[in-house]
């Protein structure tokens, strides 16, 4: 996005939570695209994006500051933490697809530490063991009363993406879950 020079007012600015075995912090601002594409466009869209779209459930692909998360059979979430605008990259791909800028729709919380899965499992009913949810796995799911996208970036680190107005709930839920582990 061209306006990157103007500071964004993130909904969770200044918050921090956690303890000895887990830390909870708001992520830095990022650009995001909700990408939809039929099977036959995947190669062309991958080329435009500079990264091969993962085609298996719960898989992600990462190249530099850009991650692409499989959310559904024709749906991906592109997260750009650098300054290459993914909307601009996708605009160059002529194959049939839909790219919608959701940079500001979502915000993210980084949860790290040895008990990271225990904290998330306070509200997420999925099996988050390394066998079932290895590093690089991602999924749209629920946490407490809201929908989130979980992305495991390391054995002890998750990125929790949620919609902006649910981020207060998400953060405070995680804070509560991290009490007295």
């Amino acid at each position: 996005m061209a306006e990157a020079q103007i500071a964004r007012e993130l909904p969770l600015a200044g918050r921090a939570a956690g303890g000895a075995s887990v830390s909870i912090t708001p992520a830095e601002p990022a650009m995001r695209v909700s990408l939809r594409a039929p099977q036959e466009s995947i190669a062309a869209v991958s080329k435009g994006l500079g990264i091969d779209l993962p085609t298996r459930p719960k898989q992600s692909a990462v190249a530099g500051a850009r991650s692409v998360l499989w959310l559904g059979p024709d749906e991906w979430l592109v997260i750009e933490e650098g300054d290459r605008d993914p909307m601009a990259d996708l605009a160059r791909a002529t194959a049939l697809h839909s790219a919608v800028d959701v940079s500001h729709r979502n915000t993210a919380i980084l949860v790290t530490g040895t008990q990271v899965a225990d904290v998330l499992n306070a509200g997420c009913p999925q099996d988050l063991s390394l066998e079932a949810f290895p590093v690089g796995a991602c999924s749209r799911t629920v946490m407490g009363k809201i929908e989130v996208v979980l992305f495991r970036t390391a054995e002890d680190a998750f990125r929790v993406e949620c919609w902006r107005s649910f981020s207060d709930y998400a953060f405070e839920f995680l804070r509560d879950a991290a009490r007295g582990l």
Binding site: G144, K145, S165, D168, Y169, F173
Partner: peptide, 15 residues
């Protein structure tokens, strides 16, 4: 369990 007080239910606020 967790669903009480501030996190009984999401409270959504606009920007």
């Amino acid at each position: 369990n967790h669903a009480r007080g501030k996190i009984f239910d999401p409270m959504r606020r606009t920007p």
